[in-house]
Each structure stands twice: as structure tokens, then as C-alpha cells.
Design a protein around this nucleic acid. Sequence first.
DNA 1: ATTAGCACTCCCTTTAAATGAGTGCTAACA
DNA 2: TGTTAGCACTCATTTAAAGGGAGTGCTAAT
Lengths: 342, 342
Amino acid sequence: MQLDERKTKILQAIIRNYLETGEPVGSRTISKYTDLNLSSATIRNEMADLEEMGYILQPHASAGRIPSDRGYRFYVDTMMAEKEREVVEMKEMLLERQDKMETLLKKVVKALANNTQYATMISAPSTHRNKVKFIQLSRVEENQILAVIVVEGNVIKNKILSITEPLTDETLLKLNILLNTHLNGMSLEEINLGMIAALKQQAGIHSNIVSEVIDAVAEAIKADEDLEIYTSGTNNILKYPELADQEKASELINTFEEKQQLTELVLDTLSDDNNTGIQVYIGDETPVESMKDCSVVTATYDLGDGMRGTIGIIGPKRMDYDKVVGTLRTLQNRLDDLYGEN
Amino acid sequence: MQLDERKTKILQAIIRNYLETGEPVGSRTISKYTDLNLSSATIRNEMADLEEMGYILQPHASAGRIPSDRGYRFYVDTMMAEKEREVVEMKEMLLERQDKMETLLKKVVKALANNTQYATMISAPSTHRNKVKFIQLSRVEENQILAVIVVEGNVIKNKILSITEPLTDETLLKLNILLNTHLNGMSLEEINLGMIAALKQQAGIHSNIVSEVIDAVAEAIKADEDLEIYTSGTNNILKYPELADQEKASELINTFEEKQQLTELVLDTLSDDNNTGIQVYIGDETPVESMKDCSVVTATYDLGDGMRGTIGIIGPKRMDYDKVVGTLRTLQNRLDDLYGEN
DNA sequence: ATTAGCACTCCCTTTAAATGAGTGCTAACA
DNA sequence: TGTTAGCACTCATTTAAAGGGAGTGCTAAT
């Protein structure tokens, strides 16, 4: 048996209706809902077929049908191929470029949550920034040295070092030159133990400063492993009865608060990059355990220069895929436009 | 009528019992629960008195009694005065001083949530840090200048400036000297328009750099207005039926995610500093709207040097005040010890 | 002052019945 | 052969009634 046009229409009608109401949908509803002019009995026959084919299922014997994961998947696939979507009112917010990336991201994720009424997340853009660009030690107080390290992608790391031995300005200058000449342009792999030992030796009594600076360098470079993630609208989870029970909701809320688990989602999205950069995880497809009963839609945005991040929307399986994908797509374009050229 | 010893004992018994069970408690229970050897009838009489006095109330005519806000208040006041508490197993976690404050705070707030099974928050220590300590401009690339600003309390602000006009190293040095001689030691109030104009004039063609630096200074100084707050265990809210309904839980979760509203709590706690630094807000007493049905216990911790922060525990009114206050107190001491001397 | 006893209240649970949305199947129809 | 009307059946949900039970207030006796 295969999915002819009529079955397709009926399936879509079932799903669309279920997305709206959240209730199992019966044959009579579809009979009226579609423009097929078929009686409920005919629809029933078709529904029996669709169920046999695994696209829909019955929560219990005398209930209507709800989409199965496979049904959702079909719906999403056909829908994604279909249309380009209208622009949302998020425009003006993005019009003037925020000077602080953090503020922008928080605003975006919040607007997205308000807009969609789902839980949302966004990861700060990260790149491979693995080369040291600039190091500077400065005295800020008698016994305090400020180390500033800049790595590729203009990621800046500050560290205050307390010194015990007196340090003349001249020595400080020498240390600066020493560090810069040896470490500039180096990647994490290139800075090996031998090199560190050599540096320490040259620094003599101030070798501990070298140690601390190198620690800071390491931290700055690997900082993107725990990438920053902002969330919003977690409370929207409670709006959907199928997610709102104590157990599931609790886990989800925790996931959103801890953020740790969300990085998996980000990494998965970034790694497996298809043409559009928009991905839909339905039920078990998700890489995050606590979202097994949800659907997750993610989008990759690209600010050029290898700086990429992920936006995600998490909701019930009966999520309004159409709207969500559309919203994400426009948002994606906005971000790309805004930062892309720079 | 006044609260004699017997009434006090009965009231405490009622509250303690209610804290455990979450159910209204009846006279017979108390009759057995206490060591007073009184019949349920006598207890009933006393309970009638206590109700008249406003310490307890009946959810409905034939139910047991639950504590009123006033009852909780009484309980907390007597309890706080009473005892010094046993030490919790949070010790080892704090033993070695974390190099990153952020990591420490996240660990603390998480441990606290696990420990108490309530929702918890902690604010990063902030001080009045309102004086500029150090400014430095450095070239990191041909057309990019890094501005580093350090203000009191070692709060560091970085800003990358893109320049259009060429800038010699010599000019850069001059700018550095210019900025430092004029701005070092200055507070936000002291940096006025006239001064800024003068600086700009001296900077000549590079006046825009001065502008940007001053913007950054302003940001660094006022950064403590939106102080950083970490939360954990938000999902614990759902554990308490009296908070778990869609409406309330949703607002609470939102408060914890947004964090904005939590600053009110922090500020209130920090401002109104009593002897111990531990405060209990019951029901309406809280400064945060969404917590009207909760109790909130906050503690101030002090790292010396004017660096102070707030820890908070948010739970149902029938919170285990005893344990919570005890835990907070020891935690407070730990933090003070750990960072105090430095 | 304390207590036993009792009538009364009212929430909650259980049980049963009624409802109604939806199905599968069969037979008739075009 | 595909479509449809009709009907018996299923089963979650709603509604109503009944009963239980925890707890109270009051009174009278100790």
C-alpha cells in the first residue's frame, strides 16, 4: 500500500487538526474539515489504512487518531520542502546592531519564546579560535598584575595575578616581550611542555607568572567547549498537558536551567549540517534524553568568520512546525544579514 | 489573651507537623504528637484560641488547622533565636578555593538545591566599585584596538575598538597617558561633560576612541546594577502541590529564568541587614510578586573588601525553616572563612 | 480546668449510571 | 469497485449519588 494523494491530504488534515486542538481527531471531523467531500465512513477506511502504515495511531480503542512520530516526520518533510514564509515582526528589534552580543542573544531568545509560545534556546556563536593573538601583562596595583590574553575571534581573557616577589617595570616589560615573541600565533597544540619549560627558565624567579599566563591561555582557547547558552520561555512547557506532568516537566526545566545538556543539542545541530541549516528532531530522534516526548527544531546561524551558533525551539510533538520553521528561517536570515558582512 | 507556654507548644507542634505532611492537622494528632498529655478536646479549645489570635487558620469548616503567615512568622522568630545548627556535608566542596568565582557559585547553588530540595539562587558578590583603577589601550591588529579598563574590586572590562584612521604606536602611547592621567581614580560622578570635552579635544582626530573608552568605563562601573545571579533546582517547585499549579509555577519558573526580578530580592536583602544576615520572607512579605505564595530565606555573605552577595532559598510556606536556616548559616560561615582573610 | 461524648459539617473517594465521540463492519448503492 | 448510510459496540469522560471519615464545636460530667 502506498500514500496516494487522497491519503496524503487526509493525513495532513489529521495532523493539522491535531496540532490545533491537541485532541485525538475523528473521522467525522476530517470529513467536514477537508474539501474532499467524503463521508466519515470513507475517511474511517482511509484512516485504518494510515494506521496500518504507521502514520497515525489510536490512544485507545474508541478514540480518534493522533499522529505517530512517523506521521510528524512525513508532515515536516513535505512541509519543509514547500514554502517560504512570511516575515515576523522581529525585524525592528534586529535593526540596529547591538553592541553587546549577550544582550542581543537574550533579546532574540526571549522574543522567540514570546512569539512561538514554546521554550527556546540560543547558543552564543563560537569558532575554532585556537591561536593566540596578543598577550599583555600590566601592573594595576603594587602587587597585582593584570594579564590580558586575546585569541582569534577576539575572545578576551583577563586574569589578575598576585605577586609576592617585587617586580620592576623593566622586568615586566621583558616578560611581556618574552611571552609575546614565543606565544603569539601559537595554537594549543603547538604550545608543548618543552616550550613551557624554556619559557619558565627564561622567566627565572617569575616562572610562576608564566605558568599562570599559560593556564589562562589554555582556558581562553578551550572556552568554547562550554559554550554559553541562553534560554527563555521554559515555563511554556507547562502550557502543554502532554509535557506538564511533574516528572517530565521537572526534567525539562532542569535541562533548561543546567544548560549543560543543551550543548549536546547545539553540537549535534552544528555537526550535522544539511542544506538549510534547519533541523527537526521528533521524539526519540533528539540527542537530549529529557526531550524524548518533545519535538525540537533547531537552526544554525552563521556570522561569517567561522562564527556559528544554534537557535532551538522545544515544544510538544504537536508543535506548529509550519510557523516555527518559518520563524526560524527568517530569524536566521536576519542574523546572517546583520552580522554577515562585517 | 496571650501566648502562654502551652499554647506555644501546641502552635509549634501544629506547624512542625504541617511542615512534614503538608496536610491540615487536627486536634487528635496534636494530642498524641506532643508530650503534654492533653485530650483532643482540650487541644481543640486551645486551637480555637490560637485561631482567634490569628496564628492558625482552617482551610474549611471541618478541616484541621494550618499555620497562617503570622504563625510561620512566630515559628521562625522563636526558632532563629534558639539554636546553632549542625554542620552540613557541604564542607569538602568548599575546601579548596576555586579559581573561578563563577564555577564556585554555580557549585554552591546547585549543592544547596540538592541539599534542601528547594529552588535556590545566589548572586555574585558585588561592591560599590566606582573608581577607575587602570586603563590601557593596545593594538591587537592593524585596525583594532583593545581597551582594557579595571575598576575598583578588580572588575575588568574589555572592549575592541575598530579604527578607521591610521594610528601610530606613538599616538597610542599618548592616548594611554592622556586617559590614565585624567581618569585614574575618578568615580562616575567626577567624570563630567566638561572633562570629557577636554579629553576629546586633546585627543584630536582620535576623539571617538576617547568616547568609546568612556562608554566602556561607564558600563564597567554600573555593571553591578545588573548583577549576576545563578539559580538551581527550579524544578523543585513542582514538588510542592501548593505551588505546582500551572499559573503559579509558570510565574515562578519565569522569575528564575529571567533573573531580573531576583535582583530585587538581592537588593532588599543587602539593604536591610540585620545582625545575622539571615532573613525570612513569608508570603506577602517578599519583595518579589511571583513569590507571594512562597517563603523565601536569604542570607548575606561577605567576602571582605565590601564584596557582598546573597544566597536565597525559595520554597513553600511549609518549608523546613529549621534546616534551611541552619544550612544557610553554615554556608555563610564557610564562605566568609574561605574568602574573608584574603 | 479537663475531658468524654455526640451531633454536625464538609471534603474526598467510591460507585454507578449516563454521555458521547469515535470505531469497525455490513449491506446497499451508483 | 469505490462510496456511503446505518448500526452495534467500545471506552474515556462526565455527572450524580452515596458513604466514609477526619475534624470541629458544644454540652455536660468529672
